[in-house]
């Protein structure tokens, strides 16, 4: 119950910030609408809704990283976390308390993206539900990156690193906006050594029902999620000791 109380506080802090709502839920929607409008006016297939939507749901998870990193960094920057360290909350409570509230937000963001995509012409299939559920392991990866950054950097640094660097990394190296085959070479090899493109291809495979490819992409995502979460737990415990 202690975890739920702490998680509830974190949910309120995140959802009560209008900027979080604007960027977390609004920005991915703007992207879907804008890129769909572009697609409607060009003769070539650039942003077809069935390829664009899974990409946008993954790109939107960058904001989950920003949410988790910002709340931890702000709590560290104030004495609030120090106060909580003198309560019966354990390290396990803290880590779950920061992680749990963001999973439903990530799912809600994904549901909204798919709802808008349906309005824009995405075919209704049961795979949409599966694609939304597969957001859970991917969101753990992005939340883990947030936990890691929030445990190391200040809230101002987190804005730059998670807000600018991660969104650019995810945008360029995920194949959301363009086919990585077009660039090829080292760029493609680097992209496939990172988890972002695998997360996008996982979602695309699930949505199209091409289940033969899911295993390898899911493995990449889960492997990175585990590594990042272990790193985040160590970083959090270390800063807890330092504080």
């Amino acid at each position: 119950m202690r975890i739920l109380t702490f998680a509830g506080r974190n949910t309120k802090e995140i959802l009560r910030d209008p900027l979080n709502l604007a960027f977390g839920l609004g920005f991915p929607l703007v992207l879907i609408l804008l890129l769909s409008a572009i697609q409607a006016n060009v003769p070539v297939s650039l942003f077809e809704i069935e390829r664009l939507t899974p990409g946008i749901t993954i790109f939107g998870l960058c904001f989950m990283t920003l949410f988790s990193a910002t709340i931890i960094a702000k709590d560290r920057g104030s004495s609030f976390l120090q106060r909580l360290y003198t309560t019966p909350l354990t390290a396990f409570d803290f880590i779950l308390g920061y992680t749990l509230p963001i999973i439903p937000i990530a799912l809600a963001q994904s549901v909204i993206c798919y709802a808008v995509a349906l309005i824009l012409g995405l075919e209704i299939t049961v795979n949409i539900i599966l694609a939304i559920l597969f957001i859970i392991p991917v969101s753990l990866l992005f939340i883990g990156i947030g936990l890691l950054c929030g445990s190391i950097f200040t809230d101002k640094q987190v804005g730059g690193i998670c807000g600018a660097l991660l969104t650019n990394l995810c945008a360029w190296l995920s194949g959301i906006w363009f086919d990585l085959e077009l660039v090829g070479g080292a760029f493609k090899r680097v992209a496939y050594a990172l988890p972002f493109v695998h997360a996008v291809e996982l979602e695309r495979s699930v949505l199209t029902g091409d289940f033969s490819d899911i295993g390898i992409h899911l493995m990449w995502v889960i492997l990175y999620a585990i590594i990042v979460l272990i790193g985040a737990i160590f970083a959090f415990l270390r800063q807890m000791k330092v504080q």
Binding site: M1, R2, T5, R9, E13, S79, T86, T87, L89
Partner: peptide
Amino acid sequence: LIAVSPQETAIAPGLTVKENLELICGIHG
């Protein structure tokens, strides 16, 4: 057994006053 009021004000800024008090109650069970 203890409670600490740190040097800097240690509150959850996005919660109301009542919610801050309820938060600490919940954490203490």
